[in-house]
């Protein structure tokens, strides 16, 4: 056990955690932000993707203690008040989800990929979503959503 502090969506969060607490459990159980999902125990599905110091990672495969002092953004931290992030809007407008279980991870992966490469191509989007599995949509609308989101974020493709 031990006290840890990290920044979560702009707020400093300090909690007592066991050494084996996963970051995703810290976010969901300790802080109570349940937008970050858990869909597997093999680190393959990507439902748990968050940004750690601006980089997308699987929160189910990192210990809370490894994230001490980090700056973390989860799906709840993307919108600006009532105004959705352009990538969230694009998923909404392009029907990029059905049940929505994979969506937080999809959106977080998509935002990182477009932040790194605004003029992203369809092939690059498909490659970039390699670590996110969706059981519902068949990916077509997800890829269209990321494309539209990239355009809203200033991309030319």
């Amino acid at each position: 056990m031990g006290e840890i502090s990290l920044k979560l969506n702009g707020e400093l969060e300090t909690r007592d955690v066991a050494d084996n607490t996963l970051l995703v459990d810290f976010i969901r159980e300790h802080v109570g932000l349940t937008g970050t999902h858990v869909g597997c125990d093999t680190s393959q599905c990507g439902a748990c993707v968050i940004h750690l110091d601006g980089v997308s990672v699987k929160a189910c495969t990192i210990l809370a203690k490894q994230a001490v002092g980090a700056d973390i953004t989860t799906i709840e931290g993307l919108a600006d008040g009532d105004e959705l992030h352009p990538m969230q809007e694009a998923f909404h407008e392009n029907h990029g989800l059905q049940c929505g279980f994979c969506t937080p991870g999809m959106v977080m992966s998509a935002v990182e990929m477009v932040n790194k490469n605004k003029d992203i191509s369809e092939d690059e989007i498909r490659e970039g979503l390699e670590g996110n599995i969706c059981r519902c949509t068949g990916y077509h609308n997800i890829v269209q959503s990321v494309k539209a989101g990239a355009a809203k974020m200033g991309g030319k493709n």
Binding site: V57, E112, M113, E130, G131
Partner: peptide
């Protein structure tokens, strides 16, 4: 290797 999130760690 793997996917973007695996490569990031």
């Amino acid at each position: 290797i793997g996917d973007r999130q695996v490569r990031n760690r």
